[in-house]
Design a protein around this nucleic acid. Structure first.
Lengths: 296, 296
DNA sequence: CAATTGATGTGCATTTTTGCAATTGCCGTT
DNA sequence: AACGGCAATTGCAAAAATGCACATCAATTG
């Protein structure tokens, strides 16, 4: 490839456009000797003359005029690109990628939908489930994480809502099996738990320590399935307070405890944190969260 | 302008395309460190991140992906341009600009027409007349010059045909004024000459030295007008041998002399001389000139 | 016709860029 | 849980590009 130095192309472009080495050097902000050497090097590698040299300057040959057209297009496109990139930091357009644990989907989805409506030029992608999506790989702009404060470098984390979880069972279950009066009255009852043994969710560790394994009769790896199981009357299980609070088919077995709940964190990559798109979304999300029944 | 270093754009392009700094450095033939520094500099000037850095390489942000598209187009266009420029040296296409003194138009035009027919992709421009068109300014590819060998630097000149000029008059003029028997018998005759006092044409200097000024009754600045005047019977004048030879309306007053004639030269700019287009035309022209009645 | 202007070309000192090698950090594997 | 490998960094020396001053040449002007 002869054009393995795009700067020389740019130099040749200005020479072809302006007609003299001196003028091009002036525009480029370099010494005219540099311009001459760029042209010489480029022509040498091409094996063809781009300019005819004479006392009044450089005039482009056919090859030089051809280069002029191509470089002109490049120049224009780069200018537009620069504008887009600079503007993009101040606009809420393109794609907004948000990731969170599946259990928050119910809360987040309406907010994302509203945000999408408020910004018609925006496309929203909500990633959840199967695996952890990582900000440092550029897989998402914003992550809502649960648990201890994330302290990965290059990530900025700010505290979000505290999720409360309580023990619930379906009205149907309570009618069949009776209402336990307290933690000491759990004998004979069935429980719904997580399939993941090494889950670090605090309520799951509490269940693991306080409920005999043989009483955990239904295990699932998805939060949503656990909720379905509890509602279907399989047994007693932890449910998020916001989800169970206004559901008349559910009975609270034990009220939420602080030790069961989890803090959540809004996490962004430091490179994207300052952009208008991310900032706008974070403000929008925090405003919407004020109406969440997370303390139910 | 943020993109004032197109080489950095090229570097960023390869990083965006390949996903890692190392792979890009490999393709570019430079060190990893150079690639990193290019990216850092470019991002710094843009004020925006083009890549998210992580342990497995660089992944392009939206801005980086946008740059990838633009740079991809540039890369493609430059590749095509390189192909065109390299190929153009071996093809007879585009424009062929030929310049000569007006007096040779009659001889050259048919050759140019034939050459044009032989190379359909070629456009021919024939410049003559008003002023001297200069090869060093790229105004023409080939010049046919008369007189002493041109010795301008950067021009290559090769000897072409010798033009012979003789003294002619119209048959009508001779019938009216009589046929002079030789140079000593010119008294009372009328002559047609050049308007340009300081013309360096040898036949014109001969006339200036041997014919009294008052006998030069018709002066013109264009060769073609001089020929018209002689044919119209205004007087005796120098005409090119090839032009007068087979014209029954013209009478040769004095046969051509070597001292009147002029050598002609094929001149090309050194930068263009080696190209196929110019070489092909020169061969074609020299072949055609073999049939010219320039010694008439 | 001489002087001046404005342009290109070239040797040399300096600044900038680049290459090198050692380091760190992270991921996947043993 | 430790190890090996790959990729990104970073300090320092070498190399390359650049700037500068001067030379040169052509065209224009007085």
């Amino acid at each position: 490839m002869a054009f393995d130095d795009w700067d020389e192309v740019r130099t040749a472009y200005h020479v072809a456009r302006l007609g003299t080495v001196s003028a091009a050097a002036d525009v480029l902000g370099v010494h005219h000797a540099t311009v001459i050497r760029h042209i010489d090097a480029l022509e040498g590698r091409l094996g063809a003359k781009l300019f005819q040299r004479h006392a009044r300057g450089y005039t482009a040959t056919e090859a030089g005029q051809d280069l002029l057209l191509v470089a002109q297009a490049t120049q224009d496109q780069l200018s537009q690109l620069a504008g887009r990139i600079k503007g993009r930091g101040n606009e809420v357009t393109g794609e907004l990628v948000v990731t969170s644990v599946t259990s928050m989907s119910e809360l987040l989805t309406p907010v994302l939908a509203d945000f999408r409506l408020a910004h018609p030029e925006l496309t929203v992608r909500f990633l959840t489930g199967s695996r952890l999506f990582r900000l440092e790989y550029g897989e998402a702009h914003v992550a809502i994480r649960a648990g201890a404060k994330p302290n990965e470098p290059d990530n900025v984390a700010q505290r979000f809502v505290d999720l409360c979880v309580g023990l619930y069972a379906s009205r149907d279950y309570v009618e069949r099996m009776g209402m336990p009066k307290g933690p000491d009255d759990f004998a004979g009852h069935s429980f719904v738990g997580l399939d993941d043994e090494k889950s670090r969710a605090p309520f799951q560790r509490w269940m693991h320590e306080n409920i005999p394994a043989e009483q955990i009769v239904f295990k699932t790896n998805a939060d949503i399935s656990r909720a379905h199981a509890v509602r279907a009357g399989v047994g007693i299980g932890f449910l998020a307070g916001y989800s169970a609070h206004h559901d008349d088919d559910l009975v609270q077995i034990m009220p939420p405890r602080a030790e069961w709940g989890a803090s959540t964190w809004l996490v962004t990559h430091v490179d994207l944190h300052r952009t208008a798109k991310v900032q706008t979304f974070l403000r929008f999300l925090k405003q919407a969260a004020k109406d969440w029944p997370v303390h139910g």
